[in-house]
Design a protein around this nucleic acid. Structure first.
Lengths: 96, 96
DNA sequence: TGTCTATGTTGACGTCTATCGATGCAAGTG
DNA sequence: CACTTGCATCGATAGACGTCAACATAGACA
């Protein structure tokens, strides 16, 4: 595993390394239709700006995508990234 | 996903959320025999105390175990934890 | 016993991060 | 146009984190 690969992968793991973000991510992933608007998942015990902050982090890490439809903003997971992280953990290193 | 589950899982993801720790973990996981002494994997670009610090973090997160044999300390991965994280990412939520 | 090598621990320092209140922006509704 | 709702951004603050130098400890060997 090269230094660059480690940084890329670590960025994703780091994004899931916060309880609030993990719950938000799980909520989006398990929501009906594979997507959820912020109002559906914002009940994680923190204020609304904090939720927005964490969703932005998850988006920056490439784990979520967002789309505005009318009044609401819908978040959706990036399946390919999930698969890559799963492989990494399953014992199939990227390039070692 | 409850708050407690999120905290437990987030602690593991967080442990892998640092490039140095991810490289150390990958090095141990891919090393011959599934274990490695610190001298084998300490070439990650940081000082020796920092390596020790990160290995301690990984051990606290339950991702590694350590065993002293003579002069050297050998680290080994916890396979069950890996499988659990893999399942989490593969789309089999723990309790949602 | 003394010394060297291999690791772990401590203390300090600078940086990052999570959180909040206040505010701003977009879109629907009257 | 005014008002409300949903979400993002800004500024500030407290706490966590990564890193290193210095020191401590454990084992091997002469």
């Amino acid at each position: 595993m090269t230094s660059e690969e480690a940084e890329t992968a670590a960025r994703m793991f780091k994004a899931l390394g916060d309880p609030v973000r993990l719950r938000l991510f799980s909520a989006v992933a398990s929501h009906e239709g594979g997507e959820a608007c912020v109002c559906d998942i914002s009940d994680v015990g923190v204020s609304q700006p904090t939720v927005s902050h964490h969703l932005k982090k998850l988006k920056e890490a490439g784990l979520l995508t967002s789309e505005r439809r009318g009044t609401w903003v819908y978040y959706r997971v990036q399946p390919s990234v999930l698969a890559a992280m799963g492989r990494l953990l399953a014992g199939a290193p990227t390039g070692v």
